[in-house]
Simulated scan of single mutants.
Amino acid sequence: MTALFGVGISTAVSTARETLRHAAQADRDGLDLFTVSDHPYFADRLDAYSLVGMALGGTTRIAGLVSVTNLPSRPAPMLARTITSLSALSRGRIVLGAGAGGLWEDIARLGVPKLGPGAAVRAFEEAVTLIRALCGGGDRVTFDGEFYQVTDLEPAPVPAPPVWTGSVGPKSLAATGRVADGWIPGHAADWLSPRYRTSRPIIDRAAHDAGRDPGDIATIYNLPGVITPHPLAETRNREGRWIGGSAEQWTEELTGAVLDHGASGFVYFPDDDTPTDLALGRWANEIVPAVREATTPASDPRP
């Protein structure tokens, strides 16, 4: 599998026009996807799916991802219709990001019934299962679950998109292993972090127990950091967290992540002190092409 490269873009209402411009820039520069966060309880944030729809309409090849969808505030049957509609309109340029919900005090302010951790994970897994059932045509769906009940619904004639999760706890990680196609480690944890080393085996065991190949579940990393004009003496801090460096240092680090640690993709988040246009340009035009060249097999060239 060739690694994917993306960029996280702002959802601030105050920078809406610039955000659309950055999505278009990422598309022109050949990135694979853009991601946006989903926090509908904050008035200064754009609605994630409205933003994705507008951005996909202004681009031609890049995919969009809500990382991750706040499932408690977006009922699964309606989210299935949203996702399949966006897929049809964009010719498949959508990935479904799914999460059990993190900020429950804020989520509850929307009028959504508050769930405990165990129930939230069960609802998350049930939602992904139902969304898949409502994609790809086929028999009509009647579903009588703990959290969702639908009757005699016709699936959309659109294939289910890949499903990536932001699972953190053991139960949620196990659900990822059972029903998802990709995992984004929480708290910007990377391939050298204790979080990755302790979490990924839970996903793999659950996948195996469900009769799935753990290797089919990609790991895609959210990666903040600074891109500097000159090399840094240290590219990681005392805790081992990646802080950035020159384009060459980024290239070396990400190449190793793909070849030595099986990383499937990276979503770059520009640091606050660098203009986004500049950081995005360096990421897309200097680092990404170099990592692609170093990691793409000669027998499997990119189109």
Rank of each mutant, 00 (worst) to 15 (best):
R132E: 08
P159K: 10
G166M: 10
Y221C: 02
L71P: 01
L46H: 06
D216T: 14
G111V: 04
P275Y: 04
R205L: 14
R195N: 06
A218C: 02
T84S: 15
F124W: 14
V112F: 00
A98M: 10
G53K: 06
D29E: 13
T255A: 07
G182W: 10
P214Y: 05
L79N: 05
R140N: 05
R178P: 09
K171W: 01
L96I: 11
A279Q: 07
P162K: 13
G186S: 14
I94N: 02
A279F: 11
H187L: 14
R238I: 04
A133M: 13
A156Q: 13
A160F: 01
G211A: 11
G240I: 05
H208Q: 14
T295A: 11
D260N: 12
W164P: 01
P275V: 12
A263P: 05
L134Q: 07
G6E: 05
F34A: 06
G145S: 06
G262Q: 09
W242T: 03
A257P: 01
S14M: 01
Y196G: 00
D273Q: 14
Y49L: 09
G118E: 12
G262M: 08
A180W: 07
R61D: 09
L192R: 14
L192E: 13
R195E: 12
F42P: 00
A210T: 08
G58E: 11
N222G: 15
G211W: 09
T142E: 03
G64R: 08
Y41D: 02
T228G: 03
S90P: 06
I202F: 07
G186P: 10
S67H: 10
P301R: 09
W164E: 01
R140E: 12
D277A: 15
G57C: 08
P77W: 01
S50H: 07
A210R: 10
D29K: 01
R178Y: 11
N222C: 03
S172A: 15
W164C: 02
R236V: 13
Q25E: 07
L130F: 05
T274Q: 14
A175S: 15
G30F: 05
D152L: 03
R61I: 01
D144T: 12
P170E: 13
F42H: 11
A23M: 12
L110P: 06
E234K: 12
R81A: 15
T15E: 14
V112G: 00
S172D: 06
